[in-house]
């Protein structure tokens, strides 16, 4: 059973619908007591970081979600939910859950190399490993800046500004885009998470080499 953390964010039901559409069983997590019943968690989120942090704390979910994710429960963070997984945000100078090292930053001004139009709204390509690309739907005014570049598995570019749009570390997956609104790619990503295909720690490249045979 997947638990979708409900702290009053606008896309919670859309995420729940998206998971249901891919055949997953998912319910809302409204209190810390609801958490232990779930084998995987989704942290959705739209809107401002400051009020999201307050809402999570008011409901007693902030520490409980950190404990669960740090304790190894696989978690998918979406948009603002992804940003909350870092250690802090320029938006409202909000705290982060620090599940991933790094900070969520404001886009620079257009004159400073930033996007011409902010927020970054619409369909854009996510560049994945192996030259794969997929189109996804974005709505955000801040970008993920993880301290560990090896956690970045997807990049996106707008007006020449390149930013990480998909992070993975252990059982944590963070998408700056909205998989629940991203057509076939988004549905497949939700399906992969629901099926446990993103649970395992991302293996280092070296670990994929076949073991030498001594026979």
């Amino acid at each position: 059973m997947i638990g979708v953390i409900d702290f009053g964010s606008g896309n919670t039901r859309s995420v729940l619908r998206g998971l249901t559409a891919v055949g997953a069983s998912a319910t809302l997590v409204r209190t810390p007591d609801d958490l232990p019943r779930h084998s995987r968690l989704v942290l959705p989120g739209v809107g401002a970081a400051g009020s999201a942090v307050r809402a999570l704390r008011d409901r007693g979910l902030w520490d409980a979600v950190i404990d669960a994710a740090a304790g190894g429960v696989p978690m998918l963070g979406i948009c603002l939910g992804a940003q909350l997984m870092l250690a802090g945000s320029d938006e409202d100078d909000a705290d982060g859950m620090a599940l991933l090292a790094g900070r969520c930053r404001a886009f620079p001004a257009a004159a400073g190399g930033g996007p011409r139009i902010v927020p970054h709204v619409g369909w854009n390509a996510v560049e994945l490993a192996g030259g794969h690309r997929a189109d996804a739907y974005f709505v955000h005014g801040y970008w993920l800046d993880p301290a560990d570049a090896s956690t970045v598995v997807g990049w996106t570019e707008v007006d020449g500004f390149r930013f990480p749009s998909l992070l993975r570390a252990g059982g944590l997956t963070a998408t700056q885009f909205h998989p629940e609104k991203s057509g076939r790619f988004g549905r497949a990503l939700l399906g992969a998470f629901a099926a446990g295909l993103l649970d395992a720690a991302r293996p280092a490249v070296a670990a994929r080499q076949p073991e030498p045979s001594w026979t």
């Binding site: 490993a129 997929a134 497949a188 295909l197 991302r202 293996p203």
Partner: peptide, 18 residues
């Protein structure tokens, strides 16, 4: 423009996400 997306499976996405 956003081009049409072809069929894609969860297994493919998981592989692309390494």
């Amino acid at each position: 423009v956003r081009p049409p997306a072809g069929p894609i499976t969860p297994q493919q996405v998981a592989a692309w996400l390494g």
